[in-house]
Write a protein that binds this DNA or RNA. Sequence first.
DNA 1: ATGTGGGATATTGTCGATGACAAGAAGGAT
DNA 2: ATCCTTCTTGTCATCGACAATATCCCACAT
Lengths: 341, 341
Amino acid sequence: MAKVTRDDVARLAGTSTAVVSYVINDGPRPVAPATRERVLAAIKELGYRPDRVAQAMASRRTDLIGLIVPDARQPFFAEMAHAVEQAAADRGKMVLVGNSDYLDEREVHYLRAFLGMRVSGLILISQGPSERAAAEIEAWDARVVLLHRRPEAIDDVAVVLDDVGGAQMVTRHLLEHGHEYVACLGGVESTPAYGDPVTDHVEGWRRAMKEAGRSTDGRLFQAPYNRYDTYRVALDLLAGPDRPPALVCATDDQAIGVLRAARELGIDVPGELAVAGFDDVKEAALTDPPLTTVGSDREAMARAAVDLVLDDGVRTTGSRRERVRQFPSGLVVRRSCGCGG
Amino acid sequence: MAKVTRDDVARLAGTSTAVVSYVINDGPRPVAPATRERVLAAIKELGYRPDRVAQAMASRRTDLIGLIVPDARQPFFAEMAHAVEQAAADRGKMVLVGNSDYLDEREVHYLRAFLGMRVSGLILISQGPSERAAAEIEAWDARVVLLHRRPEAIDDVAVVLDDVGGAQMVTRHLLEHGHEYVACLGGVESTPAYGDPVTDHVEGWRRAMKEAGRSTDGRLFQAPYNRYDTYRVALDLLAGPDRPPALVCATDDQAIGVLRAARELGIDVPGELAVAGFDDVKEAALTDPPLTTVGSDREAMARAAVDLVLDDGVRTTGSRRERVRQFPSGLVVRRSCGCGG
DNA sequence: ATGTGGGATATTGTCGATGACAAGAAGGAT
DNA sequence: ATCCTTCTTGTCATCGACAATATCCCACAT
């Protein structure tokens, strides 16, 4: 079956090709109702679908938004990606998702690929220092909005959470339960990265500990960002001689790994070990015990990111601070901290 | 910064535009080494990136593969999507992922969108009867490979698992543990769909029960395909008067919901209730107890799907049967069935 | 010298739409 | 009737690359 083009439609409708275009994306010129009907009928009869590639070519636009995440298999990113898709769909845009797999190289790869596809904007949940990504963005003069994480190298508009405040909040909460101290499970990055949520979580924990007059020395542990590796790390940590009485994790996924390890070792949560996570992924409500964590309005953040990337104000001037849109985080109390029952 | 086009490169390198193309995708004509060097230098100096849209326009090809899944937030689909991405990357293709959210309308939406973007092929993990999808595929004369599920309406090449055999296998295994009978937790579809894995799982369970001389009457239950809803359904099911001694679930995600409900109710697994899932998602190894399930070589299936969609033989003739590539499933024994410890 | 073969490079039509601009038609005012 | 408006519709250059075809250049055989 040969491809149906706009010319075929025009021929059948007895009009010019321009009119067909006018009907399709109503504008830029008005079309007489009768003509419109004929064109519509022809389109339906032939089963014509405009070729998006050609449209993009001619109009120099697309209704695509690129979204790059570290790993869409992780619940948090999956949920965030879904929220972005929804927000984009509400504005008639489609989202292309790329997984960087926490690799600089793949991040740049997708950046290039998406930009080459002329996406109308890019939302980036970055990883690592991202200097190469920054260079790429610069080279293309691309519209980019950073989401969730804000690498120092990339100076674009960002939509982030109050990570420090959130972590401080949970830590305080755990402290209020009367634990002698609260340990922290952070990430594995060697160099604490500026603008990194996990780094901020650690900072929040530090502040809460300090204001409570507790020392943080030797109480910060590290684990990868996924439940599987964290599970292994936690087995050691919890089986060791100085198991902390309470532990705040930088992400829910890590907390889930910890919970699993605790069960394996027969450690009662929250009786013998209080645990808290961060992110409030859907699954946090279904762990055993349900996980106390820090939540945010993910839909609102996704919407903000989409709006920023599509509307003005993205490449506005202003200090770095002013170009960051920070959302509040809220404590989600469940049972893993020792509350309720 | 104005966009750098191929013409700019040609000008700087002092050659014609065609030569630049020849260098970029070496061919179809040879280029003298010296010239190639000059072109390469010019490309680097200008930071030139070929415009993918224009390339697609002119060459009538893209290196894109569309993948439509019901919901990428579910572990199984997320893992499958990842495997497809890997397989595609190995062949130099990029994957575009769309979520149908189990809606016919969105399935067609993505089908249209991807086809309009001239993807070189489509891999479809379909849902529902998909008549509209079938019509769309027909209209575009698209290269489609069905993965995981094979709706009756769409008669394309398919890559599937031996779902019946797998379910039969686990059911037998549970039966061998000496349970009086094994109940089954299937999906919620009103009309059992042809080519649907879950329907096949139920069929496998039925066969295993029959060959063991057990009745299946009143022993088939239903729940949605995700852990959250299944958790609620399971609370009722397990708290009821005739709780089954063993339960095979149509998916791991459901089994995880069941496990959670059992814990909530204080029912020991596998002591008081043996549980098995299907899919062997990564998480199955980390549940408590670890989940006995049915696995498959996901990478091989993804590779097969990608190969089929890119190579010949896709629209080959042959009976429906012959155009289905079925992979074997294998029992993954862990502890939720009562084995080991 | 002249012809010739073939590798390297240039020219150009094409893909399928968009949208600026030109042009045509219809209706109103003078 | 003639001339403007105003509303619709048609023409065509354009987007940025590909690739078929044409052309050039030069070594080599005759």
